[in-house]
């Protein structure tokens, strides 16, 4: 078995679509807890979240959880009054749930951007529209190029004594000049790129889009598993209810609710499990 990140990009993208979709569109506490726990676990394991990301997330969690009860005064259980405004239990719980949702989504997005490299995004677009894929690839290249040239122009202009940032007006004027040079330079060079494309047959025929990725049986099978698990989760969500205002009214552990939560837990933990299996196989190979 390959690692989860080595699966076909469509499978990977579909996975994140499922997990993020469930996380972002449900305010059901059990699902959110599972999502938060697994997203942190995945983030740590795939190294998409480092120490700084954890600190940032913790701060964000606290802010999100605190802001809601300060701003929202709905709910019937008043805990105390703050500046003559009610501070309610319902708003506190809702705040925590929302904080869970936001934090979990961010962790999933970090994993997503780590797993979906530009090659993979290109592959997915290339299957639908080879031209779009090319535009994405060229854009990625140009962003880097712009940044590099901006720096070069700034240096040149500064060394010519033409770039002051002593006061605000000069600084703005200097940047405007850098931008103007950048645009001229890029447009002029764009001609060379366009010629290079044409010389290599761009536009002469229907383009194909090449990629190293293949679709394996495992990719299809995994996509099917994701679909089934997500379907169970959604079924679970529709058969449970979580009402926050005016009173907390949860009905979470219905039979479908339990099936849904279990399915979601399996879905969330699939990547680490798959990677663990691959890790073991490779370690075995080394010892043997």
């Amino acid at each position: 078995m390959r690692r989860f990140e080595q699966m076909n990009p469509i499978t990977t993208a579909f996975y994140y679509l499922c997990v993020l979709g469930v996380t972002m569109f449900s305010m059901q506490p059990v699902i959110l807890c599972i999502s938060l726990f697994s997203s942190v676990l995945c983030g740590v394991l795939d190294r998409s979240a480092g120490r700084r990301a954890h600190i940032f997330s913790a701060v964000l969690f606290i802010i999100a959880a605190v802001i809601n009860p300060i701003a929202v005064h709905n709910g019937s259980t008043v805990l105390f009054y703050l500046n003559d405004r009610p501070f309610t239990l319902e708003a506190v719980v809702y705040g925590i749930a929302a904080a869970c949702m936001i934090t979990a989504s961010l962790y999933w997005l970090r994993s997503l951007s780590k797993a979906m490299t530009s090659d993979k995004v290109m592959y997915i677009f290339g299957r639908f529209s080879p031209k779009t894929a090319l535009i994405i690839s060229m854009s990625i290249r140009y962003i880097g190029l712009f940044r590099l040239r901006w720096r070069k122009i700034q240096d040149s202009q500064r060394a010519l004594g033409l770039y002051d940032d002593g006061n605000l007006i000069d600084a703005v004027r200097g940047r405007a000049r850098v931008l103007s040079i950048l645009i001229t330079w890029t447009l002029e060079n764009g001609i060379v790129t366009a010629e290079s494309m044409e010389a290599r047959g761009y536009g002469s025929m229907r383009r194909t889009s090449y990629s190293d990725y293949r679709i394996h049986t495992a990719d299809v099978a995994l996509t099917a598993v994701f679909t089934v698990l997500t379907a169970f989760t959604v079924a679970g969500l529709t058969n449970t209810s979580a009402v926050y205002y005016p009173d907390l009214r949860f009905s979470l552990f219905t039979p479908w609710g339990i099936v849904g939560a279990a399915s979601f837990l399996v879905l969330c933990l699939l990547p680490p499990v798959i990677n663990l299996r691959q890790y073991r196989t490779i370690r075995g190979a080394r010892l043997a």
Binding site: S137, I140, S196, T208, Y210
Partner: peptide
């Protein structure tokens, strides 16, 4: 300026993709 895409392998495939 002659290079069109962001990855080496894609640049190599570019001509053949066009054809």
């Amino acid at each position: 300026e002659q290079i069109v895409t962001d990855k080496v392998w894609h640049e190599l495939a570019f001509t053949l993709e066009n054809l």
